[in-house]
Write a protein that binds this DNA or RNA. Sequence first.
DNA 1: GATGAAAGGTCTCGACC
DNA 2: GGTCGAGACCTTTCATC
Lengths: 161, 161
Amino acid sequence: MDRLDKKILRLLQADTTLAVADVAKRVGLSTTPCWRRIQKLEEEGVIKRRVAILDPDKVNTRVTVFVSIRTNSHSTEWLRRFSEVVTTFPEVLEFYRMSGEVDYLLRVVVPDIAAYDAFYKRLIEKIEIRDVSSAFAMERIKSTTELPLDYMVFDKETRES
Amino acid sequence: MDRLDKKILRLLQADTTLAVADVAKRVGLSTTPCWRRIQKLEEEGVIKRRVAILDPDKVNTRVTVFVSIRTNSHSTEWLRRFSEVVTTFPEVLEFYRMSGEVDYLLRVVVPDIAAYDAFYKRLIEKIEIRDVSSAFAMERIKSTTELPLDYMVFDKETRES
DNA sequence: GATGAAAGGTCTCGACC
DNA sequence: GGTCGAGACCTTTCATC
């Protein structure tokens, strides 16, 4: 990967509807080599997928809640089930195991506080959790899927997955 | 919007490389009306954009950090500047104003802890903040851009933005 | 909403410099 | 890396039912 790949990624992270010829023009390549690079970026898994981003308001998921979870020390089996249960809820967009105070952190989207309450009940019904604390977002100031590309490393060799 | 639109959105949220004819087949429509629906979903802003999702590992942003910020009561001008400064950092993927204990919550991605430290220094250099606390993610268990569509409302009228 | 078709554009890839 | 070219495939419209 080099600066050209980086430019290509920057464009495609913002908009995949661009035609290959347009991408090529903007990064200063001709179509075929640009197409080959995009192809390669996909094969290598640098580009994982191309998706449509929806407006949360329009699909009635206005409210974002961050859920901090503390667990007791549990069996591997419990942990497996816990991960599975949480992951299965479509309201859970992000789910991380954390270091420090909190053991797990979720980002959940729902229409309103009542719906969050219902979600919460459905969750603790399926799996027992020691301590849950919820923090509501009042305002979404920034939200993007574009990763910063300034940390990319250009080695001579293709890096493995 | 109706069940068919919902099906279309479900497909496009997962993969926009699908040809219209394929989407049509899967939702049980023929190409033309399906194309018209997609067009409409875009005009109405339900579909906001189509983007490429990159692999964080491959672009050297392996580490996710949640940053909780407490501020003092500040002037409108300070708040404006604060929002602007934070938003400008490409490492900040999400930025919410919160209710409760914490005033603001950021999701930041960087290559490693050292890079986080550097990011942190650059941040507090640009704007004075009362209290910052950082929580590191050890494992990303789930991360998706697919909003749950089960809360969609199908009214007779087109809902306004 | 379905069909069928036509025009134009884009993708994909092979050949060659 | 660049150019050319050809065929397959898609998108986009339109007319008709």
